[in-house]
């Protein structure tokens, strides 16, 4: 009895000091956590609660019923497709580019590529849209040059202000984004594994099939999904480019917020925002599943 009492007391005291130590260690992190709570989590909570209220401020699912119908459902379909296509067409060339730089490039070049990709992925937005208008718009330089060479893209049905056009423009920031987030994973593929595989009789192709691809697959999926989230949610480029002929969720929210619509739709904007968060969160599920499978061989 006495023994068990003594030992349980020992354990609880040890637990207590551990918790107190953790608390002291966490203290300097409180400003950052509080900042995130106020400027990030609180607004997100407000969006969710408001979206669940009707115009009389009563709890209701009415907004979510509204957004499953046209024109909102079309906007979701377009945005999901835009995210998926731009992620698909950016992730593969981005990964190949990152691979060639990783294997062949000098340290200096790698650093340069990372910084340049950072600029292209983050300062895109508005300037990007106008640069593409200047290049591939009806009066754009590239289009004019091609026309002079006898290739008239616009009479062939091409237009920058179409769904295909937007996918095309998005690649300009999605590919650099892929390079930034995928390069660290490539860096973790050790030369020893390549050499060992070769030594054991594997051709480069077999090495990639049995070792390289399985090792990179989780990172590739994670990158792909992040690209999807980025393309799905992008607003600036689409806003600067479109003339309102393509319904995309961020643009619809933008119009609702700009206030030139009926007041009774204020909370529809919030439920559209929650809908975007849900789509982004759903996109992370396959990532979690793959991560779980990969965890058995990861530290």
């Amino acid at each position: 009895m006495i023994n068990s009492y003594g030992s349980s007391k020992g354990v609880s005291r040890k637990g207590g000091t551990f918790a107190r130590r953790n608390l002291i260690i966490a203290l300097p992190l409180i400003p950052l956590i509080a900042y995130l709570a106020f400027f990030f989590f609180w607004p997100m909570v407000m969006v969710v609660t408001d979206s669940l209220k009707n115009n009389d401020h009563h709890w209701s699912f009415i907004n979510f019923t509204t957004i499953t119908h046209k024109p909102y459902s079309t906007a979701f379909k377009n945005s999901i497709l835009l995210g998926a296509l731009s992620a698909l067409f950016a992730s593969i060339p981005g990964a190949i580019f990152a691979y060639i730089i990783e294997v062949r490039g000098s340290e200096k070049l790698k650093g340069f590529v990372t910084s340049l990709s950072g600029v292209l992925a983050n300062t895109g937005g508005v300037p990007l849209a106008f640069m593409f208008i200047a290049t591939f718009g009806a009066q754009g330089s590239a289009i004019k040059i091609l026309k002079a060479l006898g290739i008239d893209l616009y009479s062939g049905g091409f237009t920058l202000f179409s769904f295909t056009g937007i996918v095309f423009v998005y690649l300009y920031f999605q590919i650099p984004l892929m390079v930034i987030i995928f390069s660290p994973a490539l860096h973790s593929i050790r030369n020893e594994w390549r050499d060992a595989a070769k030594n054991l009789g594997a051709t480069p192709r077999k090495f990639w099939r049995t070792i390289g691809v399985p090792l990179l697959f989780p990172s590739f999926t994670a990158s792909f999904l992040l690209l999807f989230a980025s393309g799905f949610a992008a607003y600036a480029t689409a806003r600067a480019m479109t003339v309102g002929n393509i319904a995309l969720v961020p643009l619809v929210i933008g119009t609702l917020v700009d206030g030139n619509v009926q007041v009774d739709q204020a909370n529809v904007g919030k439920s559209l925002a929650v809908g975007m968060v849900i789509v982004s969160a759903l996109a992370m599920i396959p990532y979690l599943i793959i991560q779980r499978r990969a965890r058995r061989w990861q530290q």
Partner: peptide, 8 residues
């Protein structure tokens, strides 16, 4: 999405 955050 930043759009959602802005609404919030």
């Amino acid at each position: 999405p930043v759009v959602a955050l802005s609404i919030g």
